[in-house]
Amino acid sequence: MRSERPRRPSWERPSLFTRVMATAGLVFLHAPVWVIALYAFTTEDRTYQFPPPGLTLHWFDVAFARADIWESMRLSLLVASAATLLAIILGTLAAFALARRTFGGKESITLLFVLPIALPGILTGLALLAGIRTLGLEPGFWTIVAGHATFCLVIVYNNVVARLRRIPPSWVEASMDLGARGHQTFRYVLLPQIATALLAGGMLAFALSFDEIIVTLFTAGHQRTLPIWFYSELFRPRERPVTNVVAVVVILVTLVPILLAYYLTRPDERGSE
């Protein structure tokens, strides 16, 4: 915790204009989220009239009673877990291969790994759909997982590679020098060092997968993940606030891991030692 910040010189202090604009920017970003949360409690179910005529917990009962919501929630959680696990394994392997070694074509391989996150989702989705059709596969759970793993992998890879580059080569040499086999060096020296990076990358990957819709639309077949459920719900006039209730739950489910990831990867004295 920082105590008593020293007074900064006048030319470093923000002007009133800067403060107003910064505040306005933050309000623009976050106000809609609060509006969504607010309308989860409204007593009026068709139009979003402001202010809400009354507040109720009724929509939570309705939402929790609907099987389709639970089904979609379950599918999204399963997909996100599977995609994250796959990404952790493959991303870590890729990071170890590419962090230190130099070999021909390394730059191209690195680019190919990172590309899926820069590529528009619609392209990834189209390409995957074409691939799935060509191979004669039935779109479903595993095709969604594969689609999500393409960009989840990048997140894990980037986190782990950054951490590995901060580990002095002498640590691995010292471990070998003292008699450790490769798997022991990994288990006792490297894994403790990359653990928080794995956790942070995994949580971020989970959150990305959980609310992904574009790639999912192309790869899901008849399955409905939670984002697809939202999308289809928009066209139903009834029980509008139910979507808001689910949205609040989704915000909580994604916010917690992202906050955790943020706190876990802050540089601490031990890691930077």
Binding site: E173, A174, D177, L178, G179, R270
Partner: peptide, 30 residues
């Protein structure tokens, strides 16, 4: 790991996530 030779590194290469005693015992642990 199969040579009966040990090294003191220029940057010491101590493992920061282990205590001093765990660092010293590492060669026995593996």
């Amino acid at each position: 790991f199969a040579r009966n030779v040990n090294t003191v590194f220029q940057d010491y290469a101590l493992f920061p996530h282990m205590t001093v005693a765990e660092n010293v015992a590492y060669g026995l642990r593996v």
